[in-house]
């Protein structure tokens, strides 16, 4: 009895009691808000959108100014860059002719093989352009905000790319804005953050591995579960394979830096240097897969395997 009354005496101290309640409430909020949530409550939506609406007035002009100074600093390189771009354009014009021919032939072959409408539209990804409006100031939660939201058809877990390569995944969707979680937050132990990427390489289409971690200390992505006899080698360009059900097919992730025997000795592990830059972003593209409402994402991605596309 004495012990219990002592306990009550502690709780008579109102401040301590309040502190305890606050800690419990916050622990609960953190636990509930961790992990997948498709819909946010209206206070969250309202606050998130209002703040981002104001933030966009600051971020873009700052980007322009920074770009201007960058231009002045790198003026000497512009001549060389111009030369390079000219050769690239020439190559592009040549490839364009080839591409048109191949595309037509591809269409014809698909018709000949009696592809279903759904199979034809499988890789018709829509690239929705989005401007970055703000960047998080928490190094352990380095999300950034883009100016498209659920009213633009954006859903959680859509891939986000820049012109260089895969940047991240849409994390939370507000009505007019959404947050993007960069792939530097890949973490095989966590239920939140970016999803593991099932990957292959441009050079060896039969390669397979799963990128499920990011090594902050070395600045590389870790690709696990590579078979021992896999042809993947240093310098290969790693792309998404579309088999995992989250990332669409063919997005550039990075280049293989090194390969070694994995932790358990059964499979190999490769370290991949990301292709995209994650800071000072101003424009990104959200990859919207076709006929989202008709097919389950799992079914669609299972069929995305190029080996199964025959009739």
């Amino acid at each position: 009895m004495g012990r219990v009354s002592e306990l009550f005496k502690i709780f008579r101290n109102r401040k301590l009691f309040v502190l305890l309640i606050v800690l419990i409430v916050f622990a609960a909020i953190m636990g509930f808000s961790l992990g997948q949530r498709d819909n946010l409550t209206w206070p969250e939506q309202f606050v998130g959108d209002t703040v981002s609406f104001v933030q966009q007035w600051f971020y873009k002009p700052a980007g322009y100014l920074a770009g201007l100074f960058e231009d002045i600093r790198t003026m000497r390189d512009i001549y060389r860059e111009n030369e390079e771009l000219r050769t690239t354009v020439a190559r592009y014009a040549r490839d364009r002719v080839m591409y048109n021919r191949i595309e037509l032939e591809n269409e014809r072959l698909k018709e000949a093989l009696a592809f279903k409408e759904r199979q034809k539209r499988m890789f018709d990804y829509e690239y929705v352009i989005a401007h970055v409006v703000a960047v998080s100031n928490d190094p352990l939660n380095p999300t950034f905000k883009i100016n498209v939201g659920s009213t633009d058809g954006i859903r959680p877990d859509m891939a986000v790319v820049s012109t260089d390569g895969l940047v991240g995944l849409v994390s939370r969707v507000f009505p007019l804005y959404s947050t993007v979680m960069p792939i530097t937050q890949l973490n095989s132990e966590s239920s939140s953050g970016a999803r593991p990427i099932s990957a292959t390489t441009m050079e060896h289409r039969e390669s397979f591995g799963v990128i499920e971690d990011y090594d902050t200390q070395r600045g590389v992505l870790v690709m696990n579960r590579i078979a021992e006899d896999d042809p993947l080698s240093t310098g290969d360009v790693v792309i998404t394979s579309g088999l995992g059900g989250v990332y669409p097919y063919g997005l550039i992730v990075g280049t293989v830096e090194s390969r070694q025997v994995g932790d358990f000795g059964l499979t190999h592990t490769a370290y991949i240097k990301p292709a995209a830059h994650f800071d000072k972003l101003s424009e990104v593209f959200v990859v919207v897969p076709p006929d989202l409402e008709e097919a389950e994402p799992g079914d669609r991605e299972a069929e995305a395997d190029p080996g199964e596309t025959g009739p």
Partner: peptide, 22 residues
Amino acid sequence: GLLQDITFYGHMLGVHTLLMAS
């Protein structure tokens, strides 16, 4: 803290609200 938590909602809510206030 709440503004920051909601605006940059990535992993979870409440970390910055709790820490900044306390």
